[in-house]
């Protein structure tokens, strides 16, 4: 494949990711599953952790929805709320997009970090929202690094939920450096003998997948999640006709030994607790759910 073809092919893939947004439930009582078209009762869907009861489609969750179903009730304390995204390259329209997504998500940037308990185990917890495609810029990378540093200092495990289209283009080369920064922070945490658990959710691609998201001691994924280095269309246009149907899915990654398990949403928290029990000692988990 020529460089030109690669550039060209890169386009379609990323646009597809950018177009998608966190699936929001309509205001009404019912919603239609985007995958199997089943009509779902909203209250039932919420109770089912926003997983379609017919086909198992996992709706995307906002950062706070994820925290709610992951951390023990009332234990999450957000940290590093004072970090503000700037426009270091003076990139056209960047501020406007930041403001738009601030209004949409109520967040400063895509990464939310804090301290929490999971099954009674104190942990550092990081979750992502679909803020500018979950993309990693300076603030996002800094929050990840600070979470790992705090966890290293406090001797805590880190639990990370990823959802990202990759590095944030508007911060250019500074975004690329966040890959190195986060990987380095994981290295120090790991050298301190502390566990790092990653749950890859739809989608986790490019700069985030190729940095801290792939460095967990334990790596899990939600069913059907898009996971990969570059978008699926890139490979399609690269003349790879024998591309498997499940290319760049959680299932593909499991088949090729890149993740430990695929976990339906309901099994994520109990599995994390088992892993934390294994790493940190079971006696800690007195009030597992």
């Amino acid at each position: 494949m020529s460089a030109a073809a690669w550039f060209k092919s890169r386009v379609g893939a990323d646009r597809r990711l950018v177009r998608q947004s966190v699936d929001a439930l309509p205001d009404g009582l019912w919603t239609k599953c985007p995958k199997c078209s089943e009509i779902l009762f909203n209250k039932e869907l919420e109770k089912n952790l926003r997983v379609c009861s017919k086909c198992g489609y996992h709706y995307r969750l906002s950062a706070w929805e994820r925290i709610q179903i992951t951390a023990d009730e009332g234990t999450f304390k957000e940290i590093e709320t004072g970090l503000v995204t700037l426009n270091p390259l003076n990139f056209p329209d960047y501020e406007a997009k930041i403001e738009r997504d601030k209004a949409k998500t109520g967040l400063n940037d895509g990464m939310v970090v804090g301290l929490a308990e999971i099954g009674g185990h104190p942990v550092g917890l990081g979750v992502t929202d679909w803020f500018m495609g979950g993309s990693m810029g300076s603030v996002y990378g800094e929050k990840v690094a600070r979470l790992f540093e705090l966890a290293t200092k406090k001797k805590l495990p880190v639990v990370m939920f990823t959802m990202s289209g990759g590095a944030r283009m508007q911060e250019g080369i500074l975004s690329l450096m966040q890959m190195a920064k986060t990987a380095a922070a994981v290295a120090r945490h790991s050298k301190a003998g502390l566990p790092y658990i990653v749950v890859l959710t739809d989608p986790t691609t490019a700069g985030v997948h190729a940095s801290f998201a792939s460095l967990g001691d334990f790596i899990f994924a939600e069913p059907g999640a898009l996971i990969g280095f570059a978008g699926a269309r890139v490979a399609a246009q690269a003349g790879l006709i024998d591309r498997p149907a499940n290319f760049q899915t959680a299932e593909f990654q499991l088949e090729h030994g890149m993740i430990d398990r695929i976990l339906p949403r309901r099994e994520i928290k109990p599995t994390i607790i088992k892993v934390l029990d294994f790493c940190m000692g079971k006696e800690v988990s007195s009030d597992a759910e």
Binding site: A3, A183, A187, S190, A210, S211
Partner: peptide, 28 residues
């Protein structure tokens, strides 16, 4: 390099993991 390879081969053998691990190992 224009980029790392992103073919089916590269994905199947974990191109993301390979890049991530290099950065992690190089940092220490």
């Amino acid at each position: 390099t224009p980029a790392a390879d992103c073919s089916v081969d590269a994905e199947a053998r974990g191109i993301s993991e390979a890049i991530a691990r290099n950065m992690m190992e190089m940092s220490v």
